[in-house]
Design a protein around this nucleic acid. Sequence first.
DNA 1: GCTTTAAAAAGTAATTT
DNA 2: AAATTACTTTTTAAAGC
Lengths: 201, 203
Amino acid sequence: MASRYIYHPFIKGTMPQTKPIVSIENVVASATVNQTVNLNLITQIFPDVEYHPDQFPGLVFRLRSPKTATLIFSSGKMVCTGAKSEKMAIQAVKNVVQKLKKGGIPLENEPQIEIQNIVASASLGGKIHLELAARVLPRSMYEPEQFPGLIHRMLDPKTVILLFASGKLVCTGAKKESEVYRAVGNLHTLLEEKNLMIYEG
Amino acid sequence: RLRTWDSRSQVHEPVDRNFRQAFSELDRLKDKLAVGDAVIEKAAYVYRKALEKGLVRGRSISALVAAALYAACRDTETPRTLKDIANASNIKKKDVARCYRLLIRELDLKMPVVDPVKCVARIASKAGLSEKTKRKALEILKKAEEGKISAGKDPMGLAAAALYVACVMNGENKTQKDVAEAAGVTEVTIRNRYKGLKTHLKL
DNA sequence: GCTTTAAAAAGTAATTT
DNA sequence: AAATTACTTTTTAAAGC
């Protein structure tokens, strides 16, 4: 759990019954160095990379810090996964490009980086009545035979939230950390409004 | 009964050709799964809506028909599992499930959650359990549902565990494996659900 | 559609001890 | 029967089949 954030919804003096605890778990970023790259040359210089072109066209370049896996394509485009924050994802891509340069890979441009997806986990302070939630929440699906969580598609911010009976959840699809907090706050408010939360302890 | 749809399909549009294939597939599944006409009609209705929405484009007609049939079973509370539909249609359970979720999402369908109570009858008949045991399992299940232990759990696993507990109470010589096989779950799942029933319901 | 990468949630499952 | 490992769901980009 890299970046931990405690949500404070009591802006107008209304104390909520619980404060969601949110953790950013994974950030996916795409990048490009705007030039082609010789993947076979990278394989020679960095023996630990994974490259199986018959299986997947991307080369896997792993960093120990920040602990990430970056897919590098011959087009010069990349995908970085595993970072715990937007900042770490951006730093990871810069570190990869720097290592390639120091290893002798001729790269002239700085990478252009875009955050594509953020996955976060959170805990609302109480249990959830999933069966009832499945009936009253719009754009939600609850199929316990297929998956134990309720799948809710939020329109604003456009995210998908997997909600569990324990009150824990997974939020995915956000492109900014702020959207994660807004999504979790929205759902928490909605669940309380519709009396779908069960506060015991 | 499918003849009315067939005659409608006489007009040679690409859509009708798709319909004919879907309907013949449905007719074939009807016998294999022994479901009633009402279920087939609902499945056909769902499939037509999917076709109108263009959900079949680039997808297997058979997989979508299977998913529509599963949706119809769920909607009519007809006890057929995803595995039943997958076996009858020769389509991977994972693919039927994926198409089913697509139908729910895109057609805004609201399905009732599978009731473990309805699973009891199927498991009991397959395992050859007595009426007394079945009734006891139902009692156990009702207490479990009241105790909110069911959320997120596989209804089949819950029903199987309740039946196993009922067997022990009634002295019926059935092993966890017997009940597990009849329910299509593993013994480990029955054991895990049993733990929950034991602690939360003080059985 | 699929392939690969990361990550969490909770359940089910297949192996191993 | 406990432990481990592994798979189910969701998201997202990349290039190619």
